[in-house]
């Protein structure tokens, strides 16, 4: 829709009055503002001593959720690996062990390359059973590339760690999604 001439308002810069033309009052006003900020409250977080509180939807390190029996919830459906734009999820599915009545498959290995990951959260969106989630852990470090490739055990331990610390309650919509998505154990 083109803009008609009558819709255009031409704005001239406002004319300066005596007060503005004298410069000094406004400069003093500016100096007062900066001075008040100088003595005002500081907003810096001194990081290593003072940990920031992350918003609940922060996308940090992944975790694999456990169900109430302590098993991984993942049903090895490959949805996350398919959705992942960075192709950094590597799953090897295997038939579920005897006695796991609620599913046919489980992941024998589940590996995420945390260096290739772009922390987009697509895997979390894609998962039909809320088995994979991104936590608020932000200070991820490693001494080698190998250390940054997280396997199933490591991802499950992230779950244990974050639920114990209480920083990341499981965001699952328990039961809404399918038979395997029950509420997690409360620890």
């Amino acid at each position: 829709m083109p803009i008609a001439d009558k819709d255009v308002t031409w704005v001239d810069s406002p004319k300066l009055g005596l007060f503005e033309q004298l410069y000094l009052p406004l400069i003093i006003g500016g100096l007062t503002t900066t001075l008040s900020h100088m003595v005002g409250k500081k907003r810096t977080e001194s990081y290593p001593e003072q940990e920031p509180t992350m918003p609940a939807n922060y996308r940090g390190v992944h975790r694999l959720n456990r169900d109430e029996n302590g098993r991984t919830k993942c049903v090895a459906c490959y949805m996350c690996a398919t959705a992942c734009p960075a192709h950094c999820i590597d799953i090897v599915a295997a038939p579920a062990p005897e006695g796991w009545k609620d599913r046919e498959k489980y992941p024998e290995t589940f590996v995420i390359d945390e260096l290739r990951c772009i922390y987009c959260g697509m895997c979390e969106e894609a998962c039909p059973v809320d088995a994979i989630e991104l936590t608020t852990l932000y200070d991820l470090t490693g001494l080698s590339r190998e250390q940054m490739i997280f396997d199933k055990e490591k991802l499950l331990s992230v779950f244990d760690q974050t639920t114990k610390a209480g920083t990341d309650p499981v965001r699952t919509r328990a039961g809404d999604l399918g038979p395997a998505s029950e509420a997690p154990p409360r620890t």
């Binding site: 083109p2 008609a4 001439d5 300066l16 033309q21 004298l22």
Partner: peptide
């Protein structure tokens, strides 16, 4: 000096250097 600037000054020297025209809308 302030009064002079208000009376005879051209204000802040921010006016566009080119003549501003509005092209007729199609």
């Amino acid at each position: 000096a302030g009064v002079y600037a208000v009376a005879f000054g051209t204000g802040p020297n921010n006016a566009p250097r080119r003549r501003v025209i509005s092209s007729p809308s199609p």
